[in-house]
Design a binder for these strands. Structure first.
Lengths: 131, 131
DNA sequence: GTTCATGCAAAAAGTTTGCATGATT
DNA sequence: AATCATGCAAACTTTTTGCATGAAC
C-alpha cells in the first residue's frame, strides 16, 4: 500500500489543474512557485508511481516525458505531429481487438501493443505549403 | 543539397540492415564493431537529417529515440516475444487503412505509423507456466 | 578555394539514485 | 518503534554543441 503524503496529493492536484500534457520539470516549477517545498526527485518518483497505478498517462517527446491526469482508464493511442509535437488522443477498439487476435493466432499470451500514428498536423501542413 | 559522405551512406545502410527500431547509440556501436570510425555525434546528426528528409522514421521510448529506415514499399509489423525476442512478421491492411483514416480525419497529412505487438510466445508461455 | 561535415571532448538536459532525515503507519 | 517517503546533491544517460581539421563541391 502506498503511503499518503501531502506531496503525492500535491502532484495529483497540480496534474489535475493542468491542461494537456506537462513535463515533470514544469510541474515541479509550478508547485514551487505556488509555495510548495516539494523536491524535484519526489515529483519524478510520484509521477512514476502514479503512472504505474494507472492514474496518469505518460508520453515521450523531445527527449522528455510528459504527463497528464488520466481522465478515462481506457487504453488509447496518439496521433502525433512530426513537426510541432501536438498529440491527439485516439482510440479504436478495432485495433485493440486486432492486436489481441494476431497475438492469439500465433500462440502469444499477455499481449501488449504499441500503436502510434505520425503525420503533419493541419497547421504545420499549411505552414510548409505556403513557404 | 546535402553532401554525400560515406558516413551518411553508412548510417543509411546500417539502418536498412536493422530489423525494427534501433537507437542511435546501438547503431553507432554496430558501425564501430563493423570497423567504421564514424563518430557518435555524426550518427546523431545524420539521423536527424535523414528524419527531416523523410528517409527515416523516429519514435521515442524509455527516454531514448529509436529509428527505422522508412521503406517506400509495403511495410509490415512485428509480433515480438517480450522474453526471448522472437519476432513474427505480421501485416494487416485493415490497420494500415485505419491509420491513414484516423490521420485524415484530424487533418493530418503524410501519415506514418508505428504498430508493434508484444507478448509472450507459446514456448516462453509454456516455460513460465511449468516453472 | 570555399564551404560544409566530421570527430572529439565538453556541455546540456532530463532522469535516477544514495543517503541521512523526517513523516506515516 | 519500524518503515517508508522525502530532499538534496551527485551520478548517469542520452543528445547537442564548439571548434579545429579534413573532405566534398
Amino acid at each position: 500500500m502506498k503511503r499518503q503524503t501531502w506531496q503525492r496529493e500535491a502532484v495529483r492536484t497540480a496534474l489535475g489543474a493542468s491542461e494537456g500534457f506537462v513535463s515533470a520539470q514544469h510541474l515541479h516549477s509550478s508547485l514551487r512557485e505556488g509555495g510548495s517545498s516539494i523536491g524535484l526527485a519526489t515529483v519524478y518518483r510520484q509521477l512514476s508511481s502514479l503512472e504505474e497505478a494507472g492514474e496518469v498517462d505518460a508520453l515521450q517527446q523531445d527527449g522528455e516525458s510528459l504527463y497528464r491526469a488520466c481522465s478515462t482508464d481506457k487504453h488509447h493511442h496518439h496521433l502525433i505531429c512530426r513537426r510541432c509535437g501536438t498529440a491527439v488522443e485516439i482510440s479504436a477498439d478495432a485495433v485493440e481487438q486486432w492486436a489481441a487476435g494476431v497475438a492469439a493466432e500465433h500462440g502469444f499470451t499477455q499481449p501488449n501493443h504499441v500503436v502510434d500514428v505520425f503525420g503533419l498536423c493541419a497547421a504545420c501542413t499549411a505552414e510548409l505549403t505556403e513557404a
